[in-house]
């Protein structure tokens, strides 16, 4: 049992929900991308809390792999934003309707 476990969990939940609200409400693609990173950070805190509560390292490895995937996602995602900006002249998510019917 970690001391103050509930405070860590509350922090994790709060960060996750803040990120989700931002991802829904904002229209700028880069801000939405950063909100997703906030959600990942919140999940990471929850993983590490349970990992140290259970004397295990699985949660820590999960966060390490999430970080690696987030780095790859940042590289590809920002390249896509650059391409969209060249094509449409904006990165407003409401204007990205190529795949909508």
């Amino acid at each position: 049992m970690v001391d103050n476990q509930s405070i860590y969990l509350a922090l994790a939940i709060t960060l996750f929900i803040i990120g989700a609200v931002g991802a829904i409400c904002r229209r700028n693609a880069i801000v939405v991308f950063m909100c997703i990173e906030i959600m990942l950070a919140g999940v990471g805190i929850a993983f590490v809390t349970f990992s140290s509560a259970n004397h295990s390292l699985d949660g820590i490895f999960m966060v390490i792999f999430v970080m690696a995937v987030a780095a790859a996602e940042a590289a590809v995602g920002l390249a896509i934003f650059l391409l969209m900006y060249r094509k449409l002249g904006t990165i407003d998510l409401d204007k990205f309707n190529l795949l909508k019917w």
């Binding site: 922090l11 803040i18 990120g19 409400c25 950063m34 909100c35 906030i38």
Partner: peptide, 8 residues
């Protein structure tokens, strides 16, 4: 938490 709110 405050910094994340300011991000939004």
């Amino acid at each position: 938490v405050i910094a994340s709110l300011l991000v939004i």
